[in-house]
């Protein structure tokens, strides 16, 4: 780790201005990912602008019923918030499924969105990696990839996005608030992450120097009946092999509204819109759930060792939607 300068910002414009003073500057939030990456040499900023003390630590209900979550709200506070638990229980469950209690106390909402992949080749600076060193190659394609992407990857990168929180946010149409030198702006989460293509090092649509200031969840009655389930190689404290956020509104056996998003299958939290379209207005049966999952997963292109994710996600969709249907009937 090379030496770096450290500055604390006290308000958002100052933070953005401080970052602009050095092309190799980075914002420091909870540090749970950035400090680790600095130790392994993946990141080597010249200046850290500490934004943890910014007044972005509130969760508030807007006049239109939307939930506005500040960027420096910790994962723990987000998960414990009564409004989140009441209106978006899958978000609480997703956050609680991630990392550990101590990491969740440190990690922030803004930082969570910017998490880097846990692909082992990305984290090992002795290895080639197109995401870390553009053009150097992707050893995961022919190497170790049993927990890599099955959807929308490219021959340049097959890494997954590691966030659990992001999966629930994707299901609930989150909008990311940012602040640039030009002032505040908004980016829907669906446009926040960029396709892998031939630029896996460009992960998001944040303008240079922009600071994430918060996330807004539009009011969504369906979200009150939502769950998150994560399958992983330990019962806790492990990244997902596959996960699903689901919300379901069923009336008289018919799907009125549904939200579905998958984790650990692509370079971004995967909103399953094809499956949602297949389900909406149709019967809430296991057959329909399976058909919807198949519709979404038809585009899956598994590699040699991650094909299990296709039946895994399919089975999770069926199990979760069946469970939500049964809960609705009670």
């Amino acid at each position: 780790m090379r030496e770096f300068g450290y500055k604390r910002a006290t308000d958002v414009p100052e933070a953005v201005a401080l970052l602009a003073t050095d092309p190799e500057a980075r914002f420091l939030g909870g540090g749970t990912n950035l400090v680790d990456l600095m130790k392994t040499g993946v990141e080597s900023p010249a200046l850290l602008v500490d934004v943890r003390g910014l007044p972005l630590d509130r969760i508030e209900v807007a006049d239109d019923g939307a939930l506005k979550i500040g960027a420096t709200v910790t994962n723990s506070d987000l998960a414990a918030d009564p409004e989140v638990r009441r209106r978006y229980p899958a978000l609480t469950e997703a956050v609680l499924a991630g990392a550990s209690g101590q990491l969740r106390n440190m990690a922030t909402v803004g930082g969570n969105l910017l998490q880097r992949t846990r692909c082992g080749y990305f984290g090992d600076t002795a290895q080639p990696c197109n995401k870390r060193v553009p053009g150097s190659g992707c050893p995961a394609l022919a190497g170790e990839h049993h927990n890599h992407a099955i959807l929308d990857w490219s021959e340049h990168c097959v890494a997954t996005h590691p966030s659990d929180m992001g999966v629930a946010l994707a299901a609930f149409d989150a909008v990311v608030s940012i602040h640039t030198a030009d002032g505040p702006a908004e980016l829907p989460l669906s446009e926040f992450y960029l396709p892998v293509g031939d630029t896996p090092h460009r992960e998001n649509a944040l303008p240079p120097g922009a600071l994430i200031t918060g996330v807004t969840l539009p009011a969504a009655p369906v979200a009150a009946r939502s769950r998150y389930r994560k399958v992983r190689e330990r019962a806790s404290f492990a990244f997902a092999n596959g996960s699903i956020a689901a919300a379901l509104d069923v009336e008289d056996g018919t799907v009125r509204d549904v939200r579905l998003a998958f984790g650990a299958v692509a370079s971004r939290p995967w909103r399953a819109r094809k499956a949602e379209r297949a389900l909406t207005g149709g019967p809430a049966t296991a057959e329909a759930f399976a058909a919807a999952a198949d519709a979404e997963l038809a585009a899956a292109e598994p590699l040699a060792h991650n094909g299990y994710k296709v039946p895994l996600i399919r089975n999770l969709v069926v199990a979760m939607l069946t469970e939500l249907t049964q809960e609705a009937a009670r």
């Binding site: 846990r118 082992g120 080749y121 984290g123 090992d124 002795a126 290895q127 050893p139 022919a142 190497g143 170790e144 190689e233 330990r234 019962a235 806790s236 404290f237 492990a238 990244f239």
Partner: peptide, 23 residues
């Protein structure tokens, strides 16, 4: 073990899983 490099592909405690309390 990574065939191409000959190194270990999961040389940390997030990649090499030992049982956690919940297991």
């Amino acid at each position: 073990r990574d065939t191409a490099s000959g190194g270990l592909a999961n040389a940390d405690l997030a990649g090499y899983h030992v049982a956690a309390n919940a297991d």
